[in-house]
């Protein structure tokens, strides 16, 4: 069961890496968050932990519904081209993603003391998602892609926390969710401002400050 869910998480991350346009990227993020929601829900029901249900619920409300909705609204409102502006084309990005998957497997195998394959693969997938988020932030020019890259990294950490250390303490988890939501809202505001002042959201062209 876990295996299937984790596999879908992995696939959704690959989908995001090869996405060329903004809506596809947001859709990928939504799939990924939904998979994490199912994952948390399954853990909650198998371990009978009531507070995990709340965490899963929050995940659904914030990351599956509210944040993608906000991002879609920003795209509609600022009316810039929906292209992500790729520095590295989708095919090559996929190759990079495969390399990252392998590297995170090696890293997590060397980090863990016990040799459980299930735990190692979970850890590897979590590290891979963090790396993929970083990759998205670095190789996409649109400011919105950077926000999504950050969210993807955060998803990876969520998976990491819930697999290796049995989740963060409950109120820390809630605080982090709140924090992520606030940061998306604030970054969205800044995207609006950038668009107003520069009439584009291409971060590659933000180069007034130097030295």
């Amino acid at each position: 069961m876990y295996g299937i869910i984790l596999f879908t998480v992995l696939v959704s991350t690959y989908l995001m890496v090869i996405a060329k346009r903004m809506p596809a990227l947001i859709r990928g993020f939504r799939y990924q968050s939904f998979c994490l929601f199912v994952f948390t829900w399954v853990i909650a029901s198998s371990h009978r932990q009531p507070d995990l249900y709340i965490v899963a619920g929050l995940l659904f409300v914030l990351k599956v519904s509210l944040i993608p909705y906000l991002l879609y609204r920003i795209i509609k409102k600022i009316k810039v081209s929906e292209d992500l502006g790729l520095f590295i084309n989708p095919q090559l990005s996929l190759v990079w993603a495969l390399v990252f998957t392998y590297l995170s497997w090696v890293f997590s195998a060397s980090l863990l003391i016990s040799n459980e394959t299930a735990l190692t693969s979970m850890l590897a997938i979590a590290f891979f998602i963090v790396l993929a988020g970083l990759f998205l932030m670095i190789t996409r020019m649109s400011a919105l892609a950077q926000i999504i890259g950050l969210l993807v990294m955060e998803n990876g950490l969520f998976l990491l926390a819930s697999t290796v250390s049995g989740g963060m303490p409950f109120f820390v988890e809630i605080a982090i969710f709140f924090d992520v939501f606030v940061s998306v809202v604030i970054m969205g505001l800044f995207v609006h401002r950038i668009n107003k002042l520069f009439t584009h959201i291409d971060v590659n062209k933000l180069s007034r400050l130097k030295g």
Binding site: L134, L206, R208
Partner: peptide, 20 residues
């Protein structure tokens, strides 16, 4: 201004990634 918004964007993005 253009400069200050650029600085704020870099600030928020780089620090958020770092802190992740």
């Amino acid at each position: 201004s253009k400069e200050s918004v650029e600085a704020a964007w870099k600030y928020i993005i780089i620090c958020s990634v770092g802190i992740i």
